[in-house]
Design a protein around this nucleic acid. Structure first.
Length: 479
RNA sequence: GGCCCGGUAGUCUAGUUGGCCGAGGACGCCGCCCUCUCAAGGCGGAGAUCACGGGUUCGAAUCCCGUCCGGGCUACCA
């Protein structure tokens, strides 16, 4: 285990809002760094220039910031190990590739893509291992010259040592050993001069002195190859490795857009709170004990350990996320909730941004806090505050023939001295008794007339917020 | 095909130095209470032959062997 400062990293491709699986990986890396007073590095893997746009890049940073995962080194904050975008590090990869070739750890491979795929197909049909067959591994100078004069370009392949076992300890999966005959010679520099992921990641992790490499399970097989590169470069320090189990969709298949929302931004838009997503992500693959489910970020920082990460894949289960989200919404101070409500209500087309809108939302927020699983659910619940809502089918049915009763209610409410939930309730109960109605029979028609639906925030408080004039108007305008 | 990993209720998981587990917690589901609706909260319930089959043992979810199922990797993708 490396000593000194803990340095972890997340290395997303800047291809837009980050995948929730990557968000979890980022979270675990961040937690470990924070727990040890270490450094969390953000490195952008933008070698595939064609797919990178400035918007996509910004989206990644925005997601991370929204989740609260601040980075100590990386884009926008700098650091001693920069640059932090792979597209700006080409000279380093070039230098390492050249060094590997000079020391004989890598060699030129002149095989063309067509030749390789043909041989791979042949190997496969003959039930042989489909990996590179080592054809250019021991070319003579004459053969090399012949290829060169043909005008062939070449890729640089790593010369995997023979008869070796590459072993490392994965903190979550235990010891892992791979025989080198399982690893075909792999490309480190493409024929166009660009580095492959294998090279770039290994080089950057070495150069940035990353001490703990926490990443997805899909990269376990890449680890021995990166270890080989480190070794060839004379680096003896080995980072701690931890490979996280995959996140899968409810059908057990890998999480993909085909199933539903995989982007962090989608959850933000749906009204999930970052603290809820963070808590949920922490729980997907990790547990503290046999009964605790709720963890604040600070608790996660002190309690998280890689040793307690599980090895089996987890299904991304929205209902549990919603339960956590409801919990965190209830924890929000009313003013904070009101503030967030302004945004979602405005997005839903309600005039929530006005002073009056803000005033109304400030008043209803306490009534909504224990009724929301997602912020997105708020607009329909508060719509009645912004104007009359035509009764829906059920409300209309209930309203049928209630005109006399509602007139009576309006009259009684008109006489209330101080317009407040308490006095309103008193009055309405009195009328109910006079009409010999059970509470539910008495109040649902009023709710229907005023809100247009049979489900709303608590009635008396709702009427108080709506105001006397508007309440009376709606009660008496009922057909 | 080869190498590696995983398999506890619908879901996330606890448990892995074998007995305290005739399997604990949470989400979801069902019911009751509370109640002006919906929630929240309280209480209770259903739901797991611990993938399957052998074996070791006084005793196995936990150890061994085999089988099945799922997944990852096996690219001049990352």
């Amino acid at each position: 285990m490396p000593s000194g400062t803990v340095r972890t990293r997340i290395a997303p491709a800047p291809s837009g809002s980050i995948h929730v699986g990557n968000a979890r990986t980022a979270l675990y890396n961040w937690l470990l760094a924070r727990q040890h007073g270490g450094v969390f590095v953000l490195r952008v893997e933008d070698t595939d220039q064609s797919r990178v746009t400035q918007d996509a890049f910004e989206a990644v940073l925005e997601d991370l910031r929204w989740l609260g995962l601040d980075w100590d080194e990386g884009p926008e904050v700098g650091g001693e190990y920069g640059p932090y975008r792979q597209s700006e590090r080409s000279d380093r990869y070039r230098a390492v590739a050249a060094a590997l070739e000079d020391t004989g750890h890598a060699y030129r491979c002149y095989c063309t893509a067509e030749e390789l795929s043909q041989r791979r197909a042949r190997a496969q049909s003959a039930r042989r291992t489909p990996g590179y067959d080592g054809r250019c591994r021991n070319l003579t100078d004459a053969e090399r010259a012949a290829f060169e004069s043909e005008g062939r370009s070449f890729a640089l392949r790593f010369r995997v040592p023979e008869d070796r076992t590459i072993a490392f300890v994965d903190v979550v999966r235990g010891p892992i050993a791979t025989r080198s005959d399982q690893i075909p010679d792999f490309v480190v520099r493409r024929s166009d001069g660009s580095p492959t992921y294998m090279l770039a990641a290994a080089v950057d992790d070495m150069a940035m002195e990353i001490t703990h490499i926490i990443r997805g399970e899909d990269l376990v097989a890449a680890t021995p190859r990166q270890l080989l590169i480190r070794e060839a470069m004379g680096v003896t320090e080995t980072p701690v490795f931890a490979h996280l189990p995959l996140l899968v969709a409810p059908d057990g298949k890998p999480l993909s857009k085909r199933w539903g929302d995989v982007a962090v931004s989608a959850y933000r838009r749906m009204g999930f709170l970052p603290e809820a997503l963070v808590n949920y992500l922490a729980l997907l693959g990790w547990s503290f004990d046999e009964k605790t489910n709720i963890f604040s970020v600070d608790e996660l920082i002190t309690k998280f350990t890689l040793e307690r990460v599980t090895r089996n894949p987890a299904i991304f289960d929205i209902p549990k996320l919603e339960w956590l989200n409801a919990h965190y919404i209830r924890l929000l101070p009313p003013e904070a909730l009101a503030e967030r409500l302004v945004g979602v209500c405005a997005d839903a087309g309600l005039p929530a941004g006005s002073d009056e809108g803000k005033r109304l939302l400030g008043l209803v927020a306490p009534l909504l806090s224990e009724r929301l699983k997602r912020l997105e659910e708020a607009p329909p619940m508060v719509r009645f505050l912004f104007g009359p809502v035509p009764p829906d089918a059920k409300a209309a049915k209930l309203l049928d023939g209630k005109r006399p009763y509602l007139e009576e209610v309006a009259g009684a409410l008109g006489g209330v001295e101080e317009w407040a939930a308490g006095t309103i309730e008193e009055t309405l109960r009195r009328v109910a008794t006079e009409w010999d109605l059970k509470p539910k029979q008495a109040f649902q028609p009023i709710r229907a007339a005023v809100t247009g639906t049979l489900v709303s925030p608590p009635l008396f408080e709702s009427l108080e917020i709506l105001g006397r004039a508007e309440t009376l108007a709606r009660l008496t305008s009922t057909p």
